[in-house]
Design a protein around this nucleic acid. Sequence first.
DNA 1: CAAGGATTCGAACGTATGTTTCGAACAGTC
DNA 2: GACTGTTCGAAACATACGTTCGAATCCTTG
Lengths: 231, 231
Amino acid sequence: MAEAQLARAGRHRDSRETQERLLDAAERLLAERGFAGTSLRAVTQAAGTSVSAANYHFGSKEELWRATLARRIAPINRRRLESLDALEQAAGGAPLALEAIFEAYLGPLFAERAARHAVHFVAARLYSDPPELVSTLKLELFGEVIRRFLDALARALPDRSRMELGLRFQFAVGCMVHVMSGNLEDAPLLMESVPESAAAAADDVLADASVLRHMVAFIAAGLRAPAGDAR
Amino acid sequence: MAEAQLARAGRHRDSRETQERLLDAAERLLAERGFAGTSLRAVTQAAGTSVSAANYHFGSKEELWRATLARRIAPINRRRLESLDALEQAAGGAPLALEAIFEAYLGPLFAERAARHAVHFVAARLYSDPPELVSTLKLELFGEVIRRFLDALARALPDRSRMELGLRFQFAVGCMVHVMSGNLEDAPLLMESVPESAAAAADDVLADASVLRHMVAFIAAGLRAPAGDAR
DNA sequence: CAAGGATTCGAACGTATGTTTCGAACAGTC
DNA sequence: GACTGTTCGAAACATACGTTCGAATCCTTG
């Protein structure tokens, strides 16, 4: 029981590697089928290990789910805050451009998407799996991020009420989640009416960079738009 | 087997009523927990009937799920198309305002939301439950709606490519789905920083009519925004 | 009233689930 | 080389699942 500088003493094969194989498999399967739709056995089988290994490392299916989400989302939110910090530093107190704010917010997530991690699918589950599973996790992971970005928005649009900004920010989150959930994949199916340039144009417009560019423009313009009175 | 003018011949209690109690219960539960997270027994218990009754009327859990979705979504999409027809009739070939197009698209759904039906939650499941369950249903229910509304958008914004419009339309769908999934309910939790006018302003901004107004403005402006070049 | 179909329930079937238990394989320390 | 603690596979457990079956109840039709 001597002072091991790393907290992994004896082990069978490699505890760390097993955990990550489990998290990888869980990430993929949870993304496709959600929490209730994914059995622990499916995960452990895909990870090439056993049910007891999963419960040994994570204690329960629910904790495995939480660990899967937190592993990917925490670094993304860290990068978001770093980008925002850098922007505010450079601006020296001046309000930021909406486009810059949302590039800081969306960029890290799109980077993961481009890296072909299933994180974006999984993150989308934050908004579709039962609340008792994810609501505390949501606040825990996103509380500071939302506060900081709302502050930045409030400085950029000083004439809007905080509640209004919060509402519109949720619209932006909706765009993001929807796209990250893979709903662009069947979009081409719905537009069979342009035969000539179909496939080429689709790949062009639906490339990661293009989607990000369009989304930033869409959201920024949407936030700037005046409320529009009831007719 | 004589010609009964209504197609309900012999029955135990009331076949139609049992079916609708089942659909009501399924709507509520599927909205909260999704397909995999909702057991047939939970549905039939909430409906005050038995598992076999459900399978008698719908054949399987999956068919019950589909019937639940179709019952509410089909009329909504009918109303959407009627509104669009009326607008185009009135315009007589001239392009429509983006705001009008999206009021036609979002209005019927918000009306259901105001009527406290869980349809919006359920509809959101179209985008979170496994594709093999819903993809054919999605095309079947939404194919014509998407085509017609994309046509209207193409006339309103003739300088945009069809694929670009399709992408941005998906952004709009994302806003809608996210809000309809109930994600505005925990929005106030994330904005604890305005103590004085908190509750009152929240109720005000988050009222159905207000959300619809903001969403229409947001989406219309987002669609109008130029793509923005990569920097 | 008898026959037959429609509708419902309770029970049973086989399978799959999350969790627990037991023990073996292994690494590190004396 | 025994002892200790970590890791994890095989099996068992109780429960829950979707589906099926048969009997019971009701209504309509002859």
